[in-house]
C-alpha cells in the first residue's frame, strides 16, 4: 500500500499539479508580502499607495512564477518558496507591517 502511495505521488501528473499549486499559491503569497513591504516603506497614501501595491504585486508575481517554475527539482522549489515567503513575511512582521 505504501509503495502504491509513493508511486502515486511520484507520478508526473501529481508532480505537475503539485508544482503548479506551489508556484501559484506560494508565488501569490510572496508577491503579496513584497508589495506590502513596498507599501510599508513608501510615503504614498490612499489611491497612490494602492497603485504602488498593484505595480509591485504584478511584477513580483510574474517573476516569482517564472523563477519557481524554472527550478528543476521539486524539493528545491518547495524550499525556495518556503524560504522566500518566510523571510518576506518575517521581515514584515518584525517591522510591524502587518498591523
Amino acid at each position: 500500500m505504501l509503495s502504491s502511495f509513493s508511486k502515486g505521488i511520484s507520478s508526473p501528473k501529481v508532480q505537475v499539479t503539485y508544482r503548479t499549486a506551489l508556484v501559484l499559491i506560494g508565488g501569490y503569497a510572496l508577491a503579496a508580502g513584497l508589495s506590502l513591504l513596498a507599501a510599508h516603506f513608501s510615503t504614498l497614501q490612499g489611491r497612490d499607495l494602492r497603485g504602488l501595491l498593484y505595480l509591485v504585486f504584478f511584477v513580483a508575481y510574474t517573476v516569482a512564477i517564472i523563477l519557481l517554475f524554472a527550478i528543476n527539482r521539486h524539493r528545491q522549489a518547495t524550499w525556495a518558496t518556503l524560504l522566500s515567503n518566510g523571510v518576506t513575511w518575517g521581515v514584515l512582521w518584525l517591522i510591524g507591517g502587518l498591523s
Binding site: A32, S35, L36, A39, Q45, G46, R47, D48, L49, R50, L53, Y54, L55, F57, F58
Partner: peptide
C-alpha cells in the same frame, strides 16, 4: 497585457482594502 493587469488589479489583489481609496480622490 501589463496595463490590462493593472486596470483590473482589484479583482486579484482583493486584500488591503483598509488602504483608504478616497484619501486623495476615489
Amino acid at each position: 497585457t501589463f496595463s490590462g493587469l493593472i486596470l483590473l488589479a482589484s479583482t486579484l489583489v482583493f486584500w488591503g482594502d483598509d488602504i483608504n481609496r478616497s484619501a486623495n480622490g476615489g
